[in-house]
Amino acid sequence: MSAESRLLELNLELPAAPVPVAVYKPIVIVGNLAYMSGHGPLRSDGTLITGQVGMDLTLAQGKEAARQVGLAMLATLKKQFGTLDAVKRVVKLLGMVNSAPDFYDHPKVINGCSELFADVWGKDKGVGARSAVGMGPLPGNIAVEIEGIFELDLPKVEVLE
């Protein structure tokens, strides 16, 4: 099943693709790889999920924030290529959690994004290598920031942006 079909089947609502707020590109393509800049937990109403996981937010709320980051990343991919089917597989994610000093479940938080990508692209293509680390603070006090590397299905890639 295609990623676009899964998106519809899962009834996922993507936010508008975020607009850069500094000097960077959302995606840089090198060969058959797309390097995606860090994304935050952007909701469909334009607000961001903020706070420290383990202090202001629970583990479950942090995981939901990571899922929301994943939705924002999907929105950027869709805006860039017109279809999620341009992605052949997830290669690597770096998940950064705005966490309290005594919070240690960073991988469980970032699972929110990883599980979403597994649902969209399947467990083989949607799960790549990954790092999950605690940081503090993150820009704007966002709860989670994630960047990614994606392998592209070059016959299906048409850069729209």
Rank of each mutant, 00 (worst) to 15 (best):
L48Y: 14
L59N: 14
V87L: 02
G51S: 12
K108M: 13
P20G: 05
G40Y: 08
Q80M: 08
L57K: 14
G54I: 13
A17Q: 03
A66G: 10
S131N: 06
K25C: 04
A100M: 05
P101N: 10
I110Y: 01
L71I: 07
V109P: 01
D124S: 06
G112Y: 05
A3F: 11
H39R: 14
S131W: 03
A60M: 09
L116K: 02
K79P: 03
S114D: 11
K79S: 09
H106V: 12
N111I: 04
A65Q: 11
L7C: 02
H39W: 07
K78S: 13
E145S: 14
L42E: 15
T47N: 12
P101M: 09
L93P: 01
G70N: 04
D124I: 09
G70H: 00
I146G: 01
Q61V: 09
G51C: 11
N11M: 00
V90W: 09
G40H: 13
A132V: 01
T50Q: 14
P18G: 04
A75K: 02
T76G: 02
I27Q: 04
F103R: 03
E64L: 07
P41I: 07
I146K: 10
L10F: 01
G140L: 10
L14E: 08
L48H: 10
F117Y: 14
G62S: 07
Q52I: 02
A65G: 11
Q80H: 13
S114N: 05
L12W: 10
L116N: 00
M135H: 07
P26M: 07
G126H: 04
A75H: 06
A100L: 03
V69I: 14
V23H: 12
Q80L: 00
L94D: 15
M73A: 13
E4H: 04
E13S: 12
A34S: 02
L94W: 14
T50H: 00
V53G: 03
K92G: 02
L59I: 11
I146W: 01
E9I: 01
P18S: 08
K125H: 10
K92A: 12
L94V: 14
